[in-house]
């Protein structure tokens, strides 16, 4: 009885998040990230006269650069808190995770701080990406002959 009462009390006071509003913000911000990516790719392909895939590479480097720089200035954390997945799912989220980890552990020294902890948050992306790519590639080689 006490336990049920406690659970109801917790459920009552847990802050309710506006799911629809959050989803709309994530959709719009994420959409503008895609728009910005397409715009940068077109501009780079036009200015440097390179293929679209090379332009895409430059665009990803630019977005990573901007994500790192804005994290250092301090206001990217607030933006991420506002837009949530709108900025976490694009490649800026990857840059943000690495940058904030290396900033946070900087005081522990270069090797044991920055070097050892840089991939603390972003490492799981690389580990699972590489493992799943290897497994799927292996299966496709077996199937495709």
């Amino acid at each position: 009885m006490e336990e049920n009462k406690y659970k109801r009390l917790v459920a009552k006071h847990t802050p309710k998040e506006n799911v629809l509003n959050n989803a709309l913000i994530a959709f719009i911000i994420g959409g503008f990230m895609g728009l910005l990516g397409q715009f940068l790719t077109d501009i780079y392909s036009y200015i440097f006269n390179i293929s679209t895939s090379d332009g895409t590479m430059l665009m990803i480097v630019t977005l990573v650069f901007l994500g790192c720089l804005f994290t250092c200035f301090g206001f990217f954390d607030k933006l991420v808190h506002f837009a949530r997945c709108g900025l976490i799912i694009p490649i800026t989220g990857f840059a943000h995770a690495m940058m904030s980890a290396s900033l946070e552990y900087r005081k522990e020294g270069f090797v044991t701080g920055i070097g050892a902890n840089m991939f603390k948050l972003a490492g799981s992306v690389i580990v699972f990406g590489v493992v799943s790519a290897y497994v799927f590639g292996f299966l496709r080689l077996i199937i495709g002959g």
Partner: peptide
């Protein structure tokens, strides 16, 4: 198309 696709991926993640 790029606006729609990137937005929908972010929307699924947020959900």
């Amino acid at each position: 198309n790029s606006f729609l696709f990137c937005g929908i991926v972010c929307l699924i993640g947020q959900l």
